[in-house]
Nucleic acid binder design. Structure first.
Lengths: 239, 239
DNA sequence: GCGCGCCGAGCGAGCGCTCGAAATATAAAT
DNA sequence: ATTTATATTTCGAGCGCTCGCTCGGCGCGC
């Protein structure tokens, strides 16, 4: 019955459940029996909100469709007029996360992409802020990935590789430009990825520590820049 | 029916499933009906090996006791004369991992503990090698932690905090001695932990990349030392 | 009064777990 | 050495329950 009301925003865009679910509805319009867009969007939001909330507490597999029906204020049959099967829920959620990650991370502002050091800072901050704004979605995808249906599992592996590829490309360009000093770009990118994920994977720990998202972004940025031996931005051109 | 035969060793100690299960048997002797130690150890090993193998493939919750019975070559009843319940399996596996982590990481050789830089290198290597030698065990504990029974979940949170505390203490001592230059030791320790875990959490990725464990240890060590601005070991005493 | 949306009892399947009997190993008696 | 008695270990059909999912009918707004 309860629904997420907190407006999650970042980068002048809204990452609220309502907006995400409207997009999911649009993408799956033909497989949803209910005609009214407003009604369908509202109820789909309740269902997906319940799925994320309950799954992240006790696991997707332990969350029953009856649980979801009760938590979203619908009946069993009601749920099934929005969602073809339990697996289809996985597909909807994962699809929306992957689409959003792709939209946000693969499209840096042009002035950012010019300098690898700026680009690195930007992608670190963008990833952490996006995963923060859509925390339950990211947690769901991370924790349930290994028990996803095979198509969905393949998709999430690919997406992980894509993100890492973006970071690797930045590091490679930075090394070529002489602003990073690092052995293997791929391995460094592979090591930065878990730093970005830890914010949502172990969110409770950081909350307990009193670490804010600004603290965390600063810490990861500093950590990564020192590890990559990044030359300071102020002293770009030197002999 | 199949049983892990690969002998996993490191640090002159064996971390094979057989040795781990013998310890589990000793710790749970009174709750296991079978009298013969040899028989009990052999069958318990089959059961736990099957549990780790199947759970890590499709999740503990989706792994049925019938699956475990078939995979370990016993009947339903047979399994239950070694394991009181499905939850008891979780407790056995987690208990053994926590005990082993504690034994290994909390007891560095005396010559290592003297210098924070050596100590840091040692704990990074020890953690990665241990988690490698007991990979399925670590993967199980990490992936299933959030759906553990409450007692077990509390234990694993405590253990994570303990490991991080060890790393934090090393960094604090190093900063006091002037060999590390870092803002907050706790946050740095929190960021090193996911680097250690990534080796087993995303093992498939590193296998695909062709990264060996030596590569990985070297990369994490270098990454962490640069991030902590560690002074090189050769130039310890300087004005 | 028609149709969109919702309901919830019911279906077959599969779950964790039990328990008395069968099978086997060990000890004792002859 | 053979039989008998006892203890130990294994077995798997069956119990009660919950699961994902279906479907015929009901209510309510146009």
């Amino acid at each position: 019955m309860r629904i997420a009301t907190k407006e999650r925003a970042y980068n002048n865009r809204s990452y609220s459940a309502a907006v995400r679910c409207a997009r999911i509805l649009a993408r799956n319009r033909e497989s949803i029996a209910v005609r009214s867009d407003d009604l369908a969007a509202a109820n789909l939001t309740r269902i997906i909100d319940a799925t994320l909330r309950l799954s992240n507490k006790k696991g997707f597999h332990s969350t029953t469709v009856r649980d979801l029906a009760k938590a979203s204020g619908l009946s069993m049959g009601g749920v099934y007029s929005y969602v073809a099967s339990k697996d289809a829920l996985v597909s909807m959620i994962l699809g929306e996360v992957l689409a959003t990650v792709d939209e946000v991370l693969a499209a840096p502002p042009p002035e950012v992409a010019a300098d690898p050091r700026v680009h690195l800072r930007w992608i670190i901050e963008a990833h952490i802020r996006l995963s923060d704004a859509m925390e339950p979605w990211f947690v769901f995808c991370f924790m349930e990935a290994k028990s996803f249906p095979s198509r969905e599992r393949r998709m999430s592996v690919e997406a992980e590789a894509m993100t890492e590829g973006l970071i690797g490309a930045i590091i490679t360009r930075g090394a070529a430009a002489g602003v990073f000093d690092i052995g293997e770009a791929g391995l460094s990118a592979a090591l930065i990825k878990p730093l970005l994920q830890d914010w949502y994977v172990k969110r409770a720990k950081y909350r307990r520590r009193g670490t804010t998202i600004e603290d965390y972004i600063a810490a990861v940025t500093g950590f990564a820049e020192r590890a990559l031996a990044a030359k300071p931005l102020e002293a770009r051109r030197r002999a």
